[in-house]
Design a protein around this nucleic acid. Structure first.
Lengths: 198, 198
DNA sequence: TACTTTTGCCTAACAGCGTTAGGTAAAGTA
DNA sequence: TACTTTACCTAACGCTGTTAGGCAAAAGTA
């Protein structure tokens, strides 16, 4: 094959085009069908060019994970600002988390259910620490005002997050159950959590 | 290469040997490194022989999923029989579920976090319905005796399961946190759940 | 016994994957 | 002009799941 004339190509950052193309593929066909070769074809370059911009496939995926954590943090922050009462803030956080998982399934899947190897800790994604700090704030406030001021906020944060994550991932295992029921279950669980804090 | 003399081979069911070998590989090296070719090599047959016994790779994996659901159901049942009080039964179930996930990580991963395509529903794994029925029994009992007899038992079952699953999967995302802390979080969440029922 | 069919098992391939070695040709620089 | 850097390519390696087609021995049948 003759070398492709690249005058047609947008000179814009190839790296950005790789990411954009990859993301489109993921949204249209899911993570499993994302492949370096198909990205290369889509951006109209040969395969090794991809490796000029990313060390390997994992690096591309990691980039998206970072984006996901940033977006989640931003959404949580926005949600928190809408409320002042700690209990209301917790409800707002749960709601925002739920919406994020629904609206950005690809991100959520990648961030929490794809088992990114070697990236379990907050060191790999600093944004995860941001999330933790934000969520722990109203929890701590509620504990201090409540009847069990000696409760461990970190433990409670952990419980809270687990509950949310559990509901979201079980939801995808139970295709039948309607979205409404799922939301009811979550509200129920969150209310229970808040009640236990106060 | 000359055809292998099969007198050495155990004449025992090849199908069983395939499964045993595959399971050993999974336990030693994890799901990702399970491959038809490596199974074939290990059982000392050529690749197509595997396809004489299983339609494809997914069929092998599905077999393990079935085994997992059966084992979980058995464990839950045993745990329930140890207690008579509904609240105690719920605690026992949570404990058994937790232990199952810890002891049989490969099963748990496969059953709930690997996204078996096309097998979300109970139709695919009848054992999942057994699990639901068993867990709902003490939950229903507790609701009837409690202050909110109109609560929906299915909803509560859903909440309960989600909480457990959340804790378990978040645990694997937070490599740092010790097993003890994890267990504390779970006991805390389960106690909160029970309190909300009564 | 002689012939046919079935069984058991194989090699070799197809199409896809992530990744890399090595080469060409144009562009920039001394 | 000569040299280096840049941009990009082809072709391969080794891995994956899956399948087509063939050979040889065993089993069934006339």
């Amino acid at each position: 094959m003759s070398p492709v004339k690249h005058s047609i190509r947008e000179k814009g950052d190839i790296r950005a085009r790789i990411l954009a193309t990859a993301w489109q593929m993921v949204k249209e066909e899911g993570w499993p069908s994302l492949s370096i070769r198909r990205i290369a074809e889509a951006v109209d370059y040969s395969v090794p060019v991809i490796y000029d911009h990313f060390e390997n496939k994992e690096a591309i995926v990691l980039e998206f994970a970072r984006q996901g954590f940033q977006l989640l943090s931003k959404n949580i922050q926005k949600a928190m600002e809408k409320a002042t009462e700690p209990a209301e803030q917790i409800r707002a956080i749960a709601d925002a988390y739920w919406k994020f998982a629904s609206k950005h399934k690809e991100y959520y899947q990648l961030m929490f259910s794809m088992g990114m190897p070697g990236c379990e800790l907050e060191k790999c994604f600093p944004e995860r620490a941001d999330f933790r700090v934000m969520v722990m704030k109203p929890i701590t406030a509620l504990i201090e005002k409540g009847e069990h001021p000696n409760d461990n906020p970190f433990l409670k944060y952990f419980t809270f997050w687990s509950t949310l994550h559990g509901l979201i991932s079980i939801r995808s295992l139970n295709g039948v159950v309607s979205e409404e029921v799922n939301k009811m279950v979550m509200d129920d669980a969150v209310n229970g959590f808040i009640k236990n804090l106060g």
